[in-house]
Amino acid sequence: MKALTANRLIDGEVVFWRNGQWVEQFGDAQLFNDDDPAGEAAEAHGKNQPTVVVEPYLIDLTQSQGLWAPVSYRERIRALGPTNLNHGKQADGGAAIEALQHAHGAARSTGRVDLIKRK
């Protein structure tokens, strides 16, 4: 599974794609199968919004506590907000946050690796 992420240009907030718009919570993100061309289409659409978001890319997901979480440690931190437990998105709590906090793996997202290779 994959999800599309970016940073909102106006304030730098990490955002996720859901049905044609950007949402702030990872738990609200639209999920794409690995071979689903809709994920690549969403990424292309996001890249055509240079005044809305910066560097949209697909991230790889893994199951954690029955929910999905980014494989990459970096992407889990981005989804949770700052590492200070009293701030950011993780301060809100909930099942999606618990799944993110308990996910395992430190691999890079293939989408991010592809992004790095293009530069």
Results as ranks from 00 to 15, higher is better:
2 K>H: 15
3 A>P: 10
4 L>Q: 12
4 L>S: 10
5 T>S: 15
5 T>Q: 15
6 A>Y: 12
7 N>R: 14
7 N>W: 02
8 R>F: 05
9 L>H: 01
11 D>C: 02
12 G>P: 01
12 G>N: 14
12 G>D: 15
12 G>T: 08
12 G>F: 08
14 V>W: 13
14 V>F: 09
15 V>P: 06
17 W>D: 13
18 R>Q: 15
19 N>I: 09
20 G>Y: 14
20 G>V: 11
21 Q>N: 09
21 Q>S: 11
22 W>V: 04
22 W>C: 06
23 V>A: 07
24 E>H: 02
29 A>Y: 04
30 Q>K: 12
31 L>G: 07
33 N>L: 12
34 D>A: 11
34 D>Q: 10
35 D>L: 09
35 D>R: 10
37 P>M: 12
38 A>T: 03
39 G>E: 11
40 E>G: 09
41 A>W: 12
41 A>E: 15
42 A>Y: 12
42 A>V: 07
42 A>P: 04
43 E>H: 13
44 A>W: 10
44 A>P: 01
45 H>Q: 10
46 G>I: 03
46 G>Y: 04
46 G>T: 03
46 G>C: 07
47 K>P: 00
48 N>E: 10
48 N>V: 00
48 N>S: 13
49 Q>A: 08
49 Q>Y: 01
51 T>V: 01
53 V>L: 12
53 V>G: 06
57 Y>N: 09
58 L>V: 05
59 I>G: 08
60 D>H: 06
60 D>R: 08
60 D>V: 02
61 L>H: 06
63 Q>N: 07
63 Q>S: 09
64 S>Q: 07
65 Q>T: 01
65 Q>P: 01
66 G>S: 01
66 G>C: 00
67 L>M: 11
67 L>K: 09
70 P>C: 07
71 V>Q: 10
71 V>F: 08
71 V>G: 08
72 S>V: 03
72 S>H: 06
72 S>T: 04
73 Y>R: 09
73 Y>F: 10
73 Y>Q: 10
74 R>C: 00
75 E>R: 08
75 E>Q: 14
76 R>Y: 02
76 R>P: 00
77 I>D: 15
77 I>T: 12
79 A>L: 14
80 L>R: 05
80 L>Y: 01
80 L>A: 03
81 G>A: 13
81 G>C: 12
82 P>F: 03
83 T>Y: 03
83 T>M: 13
83 T>C: 06
84 N>I: 00
85 L>N: 08
85 L>G: 04
86 N>L: 05
87 H>W: 08
87 H>A: 11
88 G>R: 04
89 K>L: 15
89 K>V: 08
93 G>T: 03
94 G>W: 02
94 G>A: 05
95 A>R: 05
96 A>V: 00
97 I>C: 04
98 E>D: 11
99 A>M: 02
100 L>D: 12
100 L>E: 13
102 H>N: 13
102 H>E: 07
103 A>D: 07
103 A>E: 10
103 A>P: 00
103 A>V: 01
104 H>V: 14
105 G>W: 09
106 A>R: 09
109 S>V: 04
113 V>P: 09
114 D>S: 13
114 D>H: 15
116 I>H: 07
116 I>L: 14
116 I>C: 03
116 I>A: 14
119 K>D: 02
